[in-house]
Write a protein that binds this DNA or RNA. Sequence first.
DNA 1: CCGTCATGTGTACAATGTTCACATTGATCC
DNA 2: GGATCAATGTGAACATTGTACACATGACGG
Lengths: 197, 197
Amino acid sequence: MYTVSTSNHRYHHGNLRQALVDAALALMVETGGTDFSLREAARRVGVTVNASYRHFRNKDALMVAIAAEGFRRFGRALMEGALEADDPQGRLLGSGRAYVRFARANPSLFRLMFSSFNVGRQEEELTLAGNQAFDVLKSGLATFLDKPADSPDVAVAALRAWSLAHGLSYLILDGQLAHLPLDEDTLIERVISNHAG
Amino acid sequence: MYTVSTSNHRYHHGNLRQALVDAALALMVETGGTDFSLREAARRVGVTVNASYRHFRNKDALMVAIAAEGFRRFGRALMEGALEADDPQGRLLGSGRAYVRFARANPSLFRLMFSSFNVGRQEEELTLAGNQAFDVLKSGLATFLDKPADSPDVAVAALRAWSLAHGLSYLILDGQLAHLPLDEDTLIERVISNHAG
DNA sequence: CCGTCATGTGTACAATGTTCACATTGATCC
DNA sequence: GGATCAATGTGAACATTGTACACATGACGG
């Protein structure tokens, strides 16, 4: 997952920061929720809680780091999804599918990413990673609409696509699709692609 | 907000359950986040923490109760939004606007509602309130499409509308609309109504 | 070799969620 | 009307958590 230092430090860990991120993420996955214990994460890594304060100002800072890591993976997933097709529309649909796929595969991380956005809005790492993910969608839409990326039309279309994928992902995570008459994948496909009614 | 018992109980509160819900909600609003302290809520109500355990199994149960209360208000807001117009399409747009309006007006509550959905999925009160809110959208779409409410087409259309409003609301709460070239209300209007660029 | 700075440990503290034993209330039945 | 009893409150206690402060240890450049 991350490169460990070569020597066998008894005292110094080597890459505690990333190790804490990974441990906390693992804890979240086990719980299924978006919460974790700082102490427990440190315990897993084999280190005292206080050691983590050398790498994060407080627990919120660690959560922001996790969210940022999530957004980086997220952006990558969106790009790879876009590469599944060759035409602009296909690429757009590909990112949409990748969006939902990511949310389903990493529910806790996905939730944390978007719930810690207000907490750590001032944190540069987070906003940067978040904007980069959004840019994937925007540039895809710009080429699809054949208009400049900063035009209002592109903004509106991107926002609509983003909203659609985002809302759909959340509804799936909340189990809101279970009651519906079609199976999940068919629903996702029909919702994302634009064949209205 | 809620009817208090007539007599001046020194010991018995009268409607502690609802009072705790209100206090916790107020705390969330003050913090801006979705978290609160059970003890602090009890303190506000003028009661010991332990008293709350007569009305809620634990803190999560209180959160679920808050979320359910939120979904009831939410459902009402959607209905009122639909009543702003007379034609089916106008009603649909009305609920969409009401959806986003509710999220902006009650950000903490909105977040809690959808983040506690997995925690308290087994809780009947919550799922009931949630489904009722969703039914408002579904019935509106059924009359709009003039098809039976349980048809796949209605399901897909409802899911798409719900996703759109939901995602847009979340993106607004996350402050993702600040960077965009149009002002928020114009964006919302253009995203919700279907004039694809 | 030795300072010095980053990185770790130990101790301490207030706050929180939760539990258990006990107190108080108010309705119900004789 | 007074005893009974379930509903509803209090009080003390405990483990866990996030955080702060003083100190230990290690790596490394002069």
